[in-house]
Design a protein around this nucleic acid. Structure first.
Length: 514
RNA sequence: GCGCCGGUGCCCGAGCGGACCAAGGGAACGGCCUGCAAAGCCGUAAAGCCGCGGGUUCAAAUCCCGCCCGGCGCUCCA
């Protein structure tokens, strides 16, 4: 049973799926006109982790995320650069997905572009007009907010309250019936791209695209609608109003991630502490995973801090995971992956309890290296019957706690606790030359993978320098065997000059790039 | 002004009524391991009793009231 905080009801509620076994989620994506910043990254990572976890629990996820490729900012940039809006949007859309990909964010299954769905939006507005929920003014088509039942429910504010602050910052269009009414369709202005409509040429208002596309692609009552918490009002409130006014059932669950602070202050261009993801990635090769870890170490509904120190600390933690992965690899005799069997073990300890509507288990994952014997041992160990093993039932217990934490509104900081506890147990067991080491290590890595913390096709594949390095490592080992420390140390210096770190283990030396 | 969210050790950050837990990560220091390292493990005491002041309770970091401080939102915004 997986529960998530629902902004609308204001409480953590079980995720009731429209269709058992499948989760349909729509997440508000970027407006593509500039470099993606760390805030975009946090948001994308939040939903990436949700998706990965749901999939890891064997749910089929359909993840849709829009690309807003027409709006004021894009028009402005296009004008400034003397290009077309679609050129600007195409450029930044490519940058966005490239950057997110480098952060390990899985691509949404569908990423509809607003400009390709204008017909649907026009159709949707047409239905609102027919229902007399909207009206036309010289500047466009507006939704009549006062007729929408429970308009302010998502922000938990009354209509009067909202009305009181409406216009406080933005000039109110006198033609509107009510200051809260918002544009569904903006009448074309000179030199702006426009599309035809029954109300004259123009372009869609901000909110209509998400309603039209989410309902068209996922259908009524889809499971989760997500985005940053700055979208709760007005964006999501207005999307919801449009859907309600059209008589359509909208999202079942509203999910919002919190913002982030840089060096203790909100990140803003005006404060000069605006950080792009590209800068982050350039700074250090491990920053992609370090940032993900940082995101995971803070609950998604809480403002997170980003400072150079925190990033460095997260990098150290990530390296700890990598070190364990190397240890596991070195300790595994033959590289025969027996993945499905391990998955079975994992699944056996994932029992969500009676009455759960959520299927459980794990999807197939590659690259955990264990022998068949290990698995058998693990299984019996889990039953607490095998001699020489103490891993039981500790390992499954950590996993259960991990799932319990994740199931309870994605408490990733708590879930990580289990991962790192497993890491320590694994290392302790390895130190003691206990067979438990591989079990703990495999489990720790499996859990880390479910959060996207371990690179998928892990093995970076031998590159050209490897033969040379292997040779140096071997010669150093030979020198050590001959107790020729001077030679051994100078060879280690050579390796370190190549950016290679050697670690001596009971199973012989292993090395990795720093 | 209205609404919301936080204030826990050197830093980040769990815990949200009692137990194994004030978790986990990072930093620092000491020790073990090591030919030396790296990695790893172990330990760190009397000023962390959980922003401050009251209250509820047999029992509160956890609930209630007030106050102080910080952050965010109120149609640009992840």
């Amino acid at each position: 049973m997986i529960s998530l905080y629902d902004t609308l009801s204001g409480e953590v509620r079980p995720l009731e799926l429209r269709e058992p076994g499948r989760v349909d989620m729509y997440v508000c994506g970027p407006t593509v006109y500039d470099h993606p910043h760390l805030g975009h990254a946090r948001s994308a990572l939040t939903y990436d982790v949700l998706r990965r976890y749901l999939e890891w629990r064997n749910l089929e996820v359909r993840h849709v995320s829009n690309v807003t490729d027409i709006d004021d900012k894009i028009i402005e940039r296009a004008r400034r650069e003397g290009r077309t809006e679609s050129e600007v949007a195409a450029e930044w859309e490519a940058v966005y997905f490239d950057v997110m990909g480098r952060l390990g964010v899985l691509e949404p299954h569908e990423r509809p572009r607003a400009t390709e769905w204008v017909d649907d939006m026009v159709g949707f507005i047409g239905r609102l007009m027919e229902a007399d929920a909207a009206y036309v003014t010289p500047s466009g088509v507006y939704l009549r907010v006062r007729d929408v039942p429970d308009y302010g429910d998502l922000v938990h504010r009354s209509l009067d309250d909202l009305r009181a602050s409406a216009g406080a910052r933005v000039e109110v269009d006198e033609a509107k019936e009510d200051p809260l009414d918002f544009a569904l369709w903006k009448a074309a202005k000179p030199d702006e791209p426009s599309w035809p409509s029954p109300w004259g040429p123009g372009r869609p208002g901000w909110h209509i695209e998400c309603v039209a596309m989410s309902l068209a692609i996922l259908g009524e009552g889809f499971d989760i609608h997500g985005g940053g918490n700055d979208l709760v009002f007005p964006h999501h409130t207005n999307e919801r109003a449009e859907a309600l006014a059209a008589g359509q059932t909208f999202a079942g669950h509203w999910m919002h991630n919190a913002m982030l602070n840089i060096d203790g202050q909100k990140m803003a261009k005006s404060l000069g502490n605006y950080r792009t993801v590209e800068e982050l990635l350039l700074e250090h090769p491990d920053n992609a995973r370090a940032f993900r870890l940082l995101v995971l170490q803070t609950h998604y509904r809480k403002t997170m801090e980003v400072t150079p120190d925190l990033l460095a600390s997260a990098r150290a933690a990530v390296q700890r995971l990598d070190a364990l992965a190397r240890r596991l690899k070195a300790a595994s005799t033959e590289g025969n992956a027996v993945e499905p069997a391990l998955a079975e073990c994992v699944e056996s300890s994932l029992d969500p309890g009676p009455g759960s509507s959520v299927p459980h288990g794990v999807t197939e994952r590659g690259s955990i290296v264990l022998s068949d014997g290990d698995l058998e041992e693990w299984r019996t160990a889990a039953e607490g019957t095998a001699e020489g093993f103490s891993a039981e039932p500790v390992s499954p217990r950590h996993q259960r706690r991990f799932c319990a934490a994740m199931d309870n509104d994605l408490r990733t900081p708590l879930a990580l606790t289990e991962v790192f506890t497993l890491v320590r147990r694994a290392n302790t067991a390895f130190d003691a030359a206990s067979p438990d080491g591989r079990i703990y290590a495999a489990m720790a890595i499996e859990l880390a993978k479910s959060l996207g913390l371990m690179d998928e096709g892990a093995e970076p594949a031998a590159d050209s320098g490897d033969a040379e390095i292997e040779d140096l490592v071997a010669r150093r080992q030979a020198a050590r065997d001959a107790r020729d420390w001077a030679t051994a140390d100078s060879l280690r210096d050579e390796l370190s000059a190549l950016g290679v770190v050697v670690e001596d283990t009971p199973n012989g030396p292993i090395w990795h790039r720093a």
